[in-house]
């Protein structure tokens, strides 16, 4: 079984700030990390490899520094990594990104046919969740999003648990297919030492645009990106409000008063 996991390098949104004046992301001094959902996707692929044999590859698009997320994937247990890196890819939205990744996946599958493509549920910097389904559409394979468990894998199909708003759906899909992964699918394991050793000196296969085949350059990068960001803003801070003081008992009495006044309460005793 050959699984390819698409991984993205993202700024750690835990430490990122939005400049309130310009409404742009302030990336100064913000560490880059592997998109957390993608890390779970790599881990899941490694689990499946352990059970069913085969190979796990990872694919990333980004600047040369994105090698770091491929190394991280090797630590988790991926076998090999591909980085597509070229100025022509820069400024890509989800449409153009899925196009570039698809071209790379097609090239990978020529030497080693792909059974499943994994992506994270979404990237924490854009939160769109569109790249995975975009790739599936272009490859003409089923996209199955928000997967929280992979329950069965055979030569021809997989059974999956898909997370819904208020429950789970059990799904069977033919192979090949594309799956996007939820965090709850697994815990990232403490990486074995030999993986750490392999990862430090690992150099991924790096492809520029010239390495990819049948590429329509108009669909790449900024040119191939119809998305326009209309406006960016930080959610306004909650302000003001009325603070209740006193002992818990006093506060409860005050709270009930407020609720009564505002008529937020059902009137139990009326009926």
């Amino acid at each position: 079984m050959h699984i390819v996991v698409c991984v993205k390098q993202v700024p750690d949104t835990k430490v990122i700030k939005i400049n309130p004046k310009t409404n742009t992301l302030d990336r100064r001094g913000v560490p880059s990390i592997i998109n957390p959902y993608d890390a779970h996707a790599v881990q899941e692929a490694v689990h499946l490899k352990r059970q069913h044999g085969g190979k796990v590859s990872v694919l990333s698009m980004g600047p040369p520094q994105a090698t770091a997320v491929i190394k991280k994937s090797i630590e988790i247990g991926a076998d090999e990594g591909y980085l597509i890196s070229d100025r022509a890819f820069a400024g890509a939205d989800t449409l153009a990104t899925s196009y570039a990744l698809t071209k790379a996946l097609e090239k990978i599958s020529k030497t080693s046919p792909i059974d499943m493509v994994f992506c994270g549920k979404h990237a924490i910097d854009g939160d769109t969740g569109q790249v995975g389904p975009g790739i599936a559409k272009r490859l003409d394979i089923p996209p199955i999003t928000n997967i929280s468990a992979i329950t069965k894998v055979t030569k021809d199909y997989v059974e999956l648990q898909r997370k819904l708003q208020d429950g789970y759906a059990h799904i069977r899909s033919t192979l090949p297919c594309l799956i996007t992964i939820e965090k709850e699918i697994n815990e990232i394991e403490y990486a074995p030492f030999p993986n750490m050793l392999k990862a430090v000196n690992y150099q991924p296969v790096v492809w520029s645009i010239d390495h990819l085949e049948d590429v329509d350059r108009k669909q790449l990068g900024l040119k191939g990106s119809p998305t326009v960001v209309g406006k960016m803003f930080a959610p306004p801070k909650q302000e003001g409000g009325h603070r209740l003081e006193g002992t818990p008992e006093e506060q409860v009495v005050q709270l009930v008063e407020v609720l009564k006044e505002k008529q937020y309460l059902f009137h139990f005793n009326k009926g």
């Binding site: 394991e189 403490y190 990486a191 074995p192 030492f193 030999p194 750490m196 050793l197």
Partner: peptide, 25 residues
Amino acid sequence: TVVEECLVENGKVIGVRTDRPEGEV
């Protein structure tokens, strides 16, 4: 990665064991 102990064979240190799975080197 934490080195947890030295590997000793016949009184000679021959490597270390780290806290990671398959952690000997």
